[in-house]
Amino acid sequence: MAEQVALSRTQVCGILREELFQGDAFHQSDTHIFIIMGASGDLAKKKIYPTIWWLFRDGLLPENTFIVGYARSRLTVADIRKQSEPFFKATPEEKLKLEDFFARNSYVAGQYDDAASYQRLNSHMNALHLGSQANRLFYLALPPTVYEAVTKNIHESCMSQIGWNRIIVEKPFGRDLQSSDRLSNHISSLFREDQIYRIDHYLGKEMVQNLMVLRFANRIFGPIWNRDNIACVILTFKEPFGTEGRGGYFDEFGIIRDVMQNHLLQMLCLVAMEKPASTNSDDVRDEKVKVLKCISEVQANNVVLGQYVGNPDGEGEATKGYLDDPTVPRGSTTATFAAVVLYVENERWDGVPFILRCGKALNERKAEVRLQFHDVAGDIFHQQCKRNELVIRVQPNEAVYTKMMTKKPGMFFNPEESELDLTYGNRYKNVKLPDAYERLILDVFCGSQMHFVRSDELREAWRIFTPLLHQIELEKPKPIPYIYGSRGPTEADELMKRVGFQYEGTYKWVNP
C-alpha cells in the first residue's frame, strides 16, 4: 500500500466541504435556525453545542446559521458558553472563530407547556436576519415526558411559513410498544414523516454505516452471507464503567431499553437485511423493517440478565456495585447486563442465532459485530482449526478484520490463527472521521433520513421486546451478580454456547 501524504486539518475539512456542497440537498446560502429545546441540560452542553461548534469551526454548516437555545432556566448566552465550552476542545488559535460562533447564538427562556412562551420564541426567531423565511431545525434534547406539549406548541407557534421545518427526537422513544405508539401517533398528527428525525446516534458511527458497503459492494461476501456458512452472529456493546452516581436515570430504563432495543437491534438489521433497491432512505429502511418483521418476540429462556457488584480487589469506582450508587433505588432489580438470542425467521437466516450482548462495568470498552462461520467440513488438521470470524469493530479503534487459519512457519503443516486486517487509523491517516452527532446533524440539514429511525421500524423493535420488558417488570427477577471489570455473568457464556457459538479464547485482536 502506497504511503499517504499527511494533510493538514484545513485540507481534510476542505475535502469534506467539497463532498457536502456538491450535493443538491445542502442549501449552503439559505438562512437556517437550529433550535435546541432543553438548552440547559446535560445532553445540550456535552453533545449538541459542542457538535454545532465543530461543524461551524470546520465550515460545514450553511453560511447563515443561527443557534437558539430554549429552556425553562433563566440563562444568558454567557451562561450557555460557560457550561458548554469546556466540552468544545477549542484551541487558543480558534479564539476569534469561537467569538464568531457565540455571536450567532441567542437564548430564550420559557415554559414547555405555555403557548405564550412559544409565541415569544417565534418572535425572537423572526427578528433574526431573514428569520421569518429561514429553515428551522428543532432538536428535542428533553425528557420524553414533555415531548407531547413541546411538539404541539412548536407546531402551533414556531413553524417557518416559507422555509422547511424538521424536528429531531432523542431516544428513548417511549418505554414499550404502547407508549411508543402513543408518542408516534401524537407526533405524526403534527408533522409529516419526512419532517421527523428520530435519532439513534449509533447509526451515525462510521463502521455501522460501513456495514452496507461491506455487504453490498464486495462480491466475495454475497455468496457466504447466509445460514449455510454463518453459524452465529454476535452483536456486542461493552462499557468498562458503571453508573457513577447517575444511576437514578438509568434505573428508569435499564440496559435493554438503553442499548439493546435500539443500538444493537439497528446493527442487527444492517447485518441481516436484503440488498435495498438503492441507497435512498426509504429503500434502506424498507429492508430493515422486513428483517424486524421476521423476528419473533424474545423468549425468556433465551435471556440472561445481570447486575454488577463491587470488586473487592478493585480501586475507586470498581469497588462499588450498582446498588451502592446513592441515586439507585434500594434493592433495585434493574439489569445492567443483558444477553438475548433472537432468530430472523426467513430463508437466508433460518436457524442462525443472533446474540445481542450489552452491559456496564465490564472488562473493556468495545462495540462490534462478529460473524462466526461454520467449521470446515472434512477436517484434515486433527481438530487444530478454529472457526473463521469476520469482525466489524465499531469502537474504539474502528477496524474490519477476518480471523482465519494460516500455516505456522516451519517444517510442518501446523495451522495457527491469524488475521486479515483493515484498521482505519492506519489505512486512512488523512481522513477526519466525523463524530456520530456531527454526521447525523449534517444529515438533518441535508434532509437525508437514511440513518434515522422510521415509525414502522420503531414499532417493530418495541413489538419484539415489550413482552419481555413487561414480564421483567411484573416478576422482578433478581439479576445474576457479576463482578465489576469482569466479562459479565458466566451464564451468558453458557447461553451463547448452547445456541452454537464457540468461544476459543486463544486469539485476541490487537490494534496495530
Rank of each mutant, 00 (worst) to 15 (best):
Y147K: 03
H186W: 08
Y249G: 03
A127G: 12
I52W: 01
A115T: 12
A149P: 14
Y202M: 00
E94Y: 07
R9F: 15
A25F: 12
E252Q: 15
A78G: 15
N185C: 12
E170Q: 04
K82C: 10
V169G: 04
S179Y: 01
D200Q: 05
G69I: 02
G110W: 01
K89S: 13
G245R: 08
Q209R: 01
L190M: 12
G110L: 03
G23Q: 15
T51G: 05
M207A: 03
T31G: 10
I154Y: 02
N105R: 03
S73K: 13
A78I: 08
L121P: 02
Q111W: 09
E193Q: 01
S180G: 05
R104T: 05
K97C: 08
A39P: 06
E206Q: 09
E93D: 13
K95D: 09
F216I: 05
S117M: 10
Q11T: 15
F56W: 15
Y249T: 02
S106G: 09
I15K: 15
F101N: 00
I154R: 01
K152H: 14
K97F: 07
L137Q: 06
L211P: 01
L177G: 08
G254K: 03
L214N: 00
I168A: 13
I220W: 12
G59E: 07
W164I: 09
A109E: 13
I196D: 00
L183S: 01
G204K: 02
H201G: 01
F221R: 01
F88W: 04
E148Y: 08
A103V: 14
V77L: 12
S123A: 14
Y139Q: 06
E244Q: 10
I220V: 12
R9L: 08
S179L: 04
E193C: 05
D113H: 13
Y139L: 06
F102M: 08
H186C: 11
F101T: 03
N122F: 08
E239P: 03
I162D: 13
V233C: 09
T10C: 09
R246C: 04
Q133W: 10
I230S: 00
H201M: 02
R17L: 11
D194H: 09
T151Q: 06
I167V: 13
E206K: 01
E193L: 03
Q83H: 13
R219L: 06
T243A: 06
N210Q: 06
N165F: 10
M212I: 08
V169Q: 03
R182D: 13
K82F: 11
R175F: 12
I187E: 02
L183R: 01
I199Y: 04
Y70N: 07
G204N: 01
H129I: 12
F21T: 13
R104M: 13
F21I: 15
H155G: 11
E170R: 02
V213P: 11
R219F: 08
L211G: 00
R120V: 13
L96S: 12
R104K: 08
N210E: 05
L20V: 12
W53K: 02
G69D: 03
R227W: 05
K46G: 01
V208F: 04
Y139D: 05
P172R: 01
G69V: 02
Q111V: 15
Y49C: 00
G247W: 05
Q178I: 15
I167D: 00
Q195M: 10
H155W: 10
T236E: 13
A109R: 11
G163R: 09
V150I: 09
L190P: 01
L140V: 10
I167T: 09
N64H: 12
R81W: 09
G247R: 05
K171L: 03
D24I: 10
D100E: 11
V77A: 07
L98W: 03
A78S: 15
R227C: 08
S188T: 07
D79L: 06
R215T: 04
N126K: 11
L61E: 04
F21M: 15
I67Q: 03
S179E: 08
L98V: 14
F87G: 06
D58F: 10
I80T: 05
L128H: 13
F102T: 02
Y118Q: 05
L177Q: 09
Y249S: 04
L60I: 10
L98Y: 06
Q178E: 13
